[in-house]
């Protein structure tokens, strides 16, 4: 089956990203396809490579990036939500006149249409949030 996953909260404050990650791993292990993981609201904060959690804690950004690399996952950060919260890729940083970008490997910034498309293309859309 083909899944879309929505992550509506950032890492650490809420369990949403952890739950979504564990769900994604379990779905992939069962041979399901993940069409897209869409990060919305504060969920965009999963996509900054500047997070530095304590060494004995999990690094959710790295977990997502590694899962994306291993399985070719499409991790999409909502552009409107990202701009509000300071998540930028190189193009956006240039366009907005900012002095650097912070998007993590495996993540890309795109529009809300990607969420609707995930709803259309996936057999099931599963939301994790607050």
């Amino acid at each position: 089956m083909r899944f879309g996953i929505v992550v509506n909260e950032g890492p650490y404050t809420h369990q949403a990203s952890d739950s979504a990650y564990r769900f994604a791993v379990a779905a992939l292990e069962k041979g399901h396809e993940i069409f897209r993981v869409f990060f919305y609201h504060d969920g965009v904060n999963n996509g900054t490579r500047y997070t530095v959690p304590p060494q004995d804690d999990r690094n959710l950004q790295k977990l997502w990036s590694e899962l994306a690399e291993k399985h070719g996952l499409d991790l999409v950060v909502c552009i409107a939500a990202a701009q509000r919260r300071g998540i930028l890729d190189a193009n956006e940083a240039k366009r907005q006149g900012k002095d650097g970008d912070n998007i993590a490997p495996g993540f890309r910034i795109s529009g809300l249409g990607q969420l609707i498309e995930a709803g259309i293309q996936a057999d099931r859309l599963v939301t994790f949030g607050d």
Binding site: F3, N8, F23, A26, K30, H32, D123, L125, V126
Partner: peptide, 20 residues
């Protein structure tokens, strides 16, 4: 259920509704 069971439940039902 564990996470694998969670995945199975989503496939057994027609849609998922999250109450946040």
């Amino acid at each position: 259920v564990d996470y694998a069971g969670f995945v199975d439940l989503t496939t057994e039902k027609a849609r998922v509704c999250a109450w946040l």
